[in-house]
Simulated scan of single mutants.
Amino acid sequence: MYPSQMKAFKSAEPKTLGAVEIIIGTLAVILSTIVYKLHYHIQREIIILILNGAQLIITGIVLVHAGRRPTKCLVGTNIVLQLLTAAFDIVGFGLMARHVPFRGESYYYRDTEFLVNGILGTLIGSLVLACIIGLVVALFGLYALSVSAIKELTPIPNSTANPQYGSGGQAKSAMHAGN
C-alpha cells in the first residue's frame, strides 16, 4: 500500500473501531445466551444473534490487525467482512424488532418480561451501532484503496520527479533513446 493509502485507512481509527466491534460482539453473545436460556420459543432468532456476535468478534480482530499493519489484502478482507457483518446486523435487529415489546404467554414469562425487553432493546441498539461502524469502515477502506491510490499515481505537470510524465520533448526523447 502507498503511504497515502495507509494514512487514509488509519484516519478511520481501525484499531479503536475493531475494539468496539469486539466489545459489541461479546455483549451480543452474552445477552443472546441469556435470552436463549430464558425463552425457548425464540431460539432460532437468538441462534442467529449468537452467530452474529461471533462474526462481530472475528471481524473486530481482523480490523484491529489491519489497523496495525494495513495491506491491500487485509483492507479488502475488512471491506467484505464489514459488509457481511452489516447485512447480518440488519437481519438480526429485524428479527429482534418483532419481539419488542416482549409479551409472555404464561406466568413464568410475565416475571421476566421487563428483563427480556431490556436485553432485546440493548441487542437492537448494539446491532445498529455495529452496522454503522461496519459501513463506515467499509467506506473508509474503499476510499483508501481507490482515491488515495489515484492521488499517488497522478502525475504533477512540469515536475522533475517523474520525467516520463513531463510535457517537454526532452523527456520523451530520452525515454525513446533508452536513457
Rank of each mutant, 00 (worst) to 15 (best):
I47E: 15
A12R: 12
I47C: 03
I48L: 04
K15C: 11
K10A: 05
E21F: 13
I50H: 01
I47Q: 11
E21Y: 06
K37G: 11
A54W: 02
E21I: 02
Y36P: 00
K7R: 12
K37D: 07
A8D: 10
Y2E: 09
I22A: 11
A12L: 05
A12M: 11
Y2T: 03
A28K: 07
G53H: 02
L38R: 12
P3A: 07
A54P: 00
I23L: 09
E13H: 14
I46Q: 02
A12N: 12
R44Q: 05
L49A: 13
K37Q: 09
L17T: 01
L17Q: 15
V29M: 13
K37E: 10
I47G: 01
A54G: 14
E21R: 06
F9A: 08
P3E: 10
I30T: 12
I23S: 14
K7L: 09
P3Y: 01
Q43H: 13
I57A: 05
I46F: 00
L17G: 07
E13M: 14
L56K: 05
L49N: 15
K37M: 14
I50V: 04
G18S: 01
E21A: 14
Q43F: 03
L31Q: 09
V35Y: 02
I22M: 15
I46Y: 02
K37T: 12
V20R: 14
Y40V: 03
A8R: 08
A8M: 05
I30L: 13
Q55T: 04
V20Q: 15
Q43K: 13
R44M: 12
T26D: 00
H39Y: 08
Q43T: 13
H41T: 13
V35E: 04
S32R: 04
A19T: 09
I50F: 01
I58Q: 03
Q55R: 12
L27M: 04
I42C: 06
E45Y: 14
L27F: 06
I50R: 01
M1V: 15
K37S: 11
N52R: 06
Q5L: 04
N52T: 05
H39N: 14
K15Q: 13
V35H: 02
T26R: 06
S11M: 10
A28P: 00
Q55K: 09
K10W: 06
G18P: 03
E13F: 15
I58T: 08
Q55D: 09
T16V: 14
E21C: 11
Q43Y: 08
Q5V: 12
K37I: 14
L17C: 07
K7S: 12
K37A: 14
Q43L: 09
A19D: 10
K7G: 02
T33H: 04
A54C: 13
G25M: 01
L17Y: 11
I47Y: 04
L49K: 10
G53K: 04
I22H: 06
P3K: 08
G25K: 00
L38P: 03
L38K: 13
Y40C: 03
I58R: 01
I24M: 01
E45P: 05
Q55V: 03
A8Q: 08
I23E: 09
T33A: 12
V20W: 03
K37H: 06
A19P: 05
E13V: 03
S4V: 11
V35S: 05
I50K: 04
M1N: 08
P3Q: 07
I24P: 00
L38A: 10
T33I: 07
S32A: 13
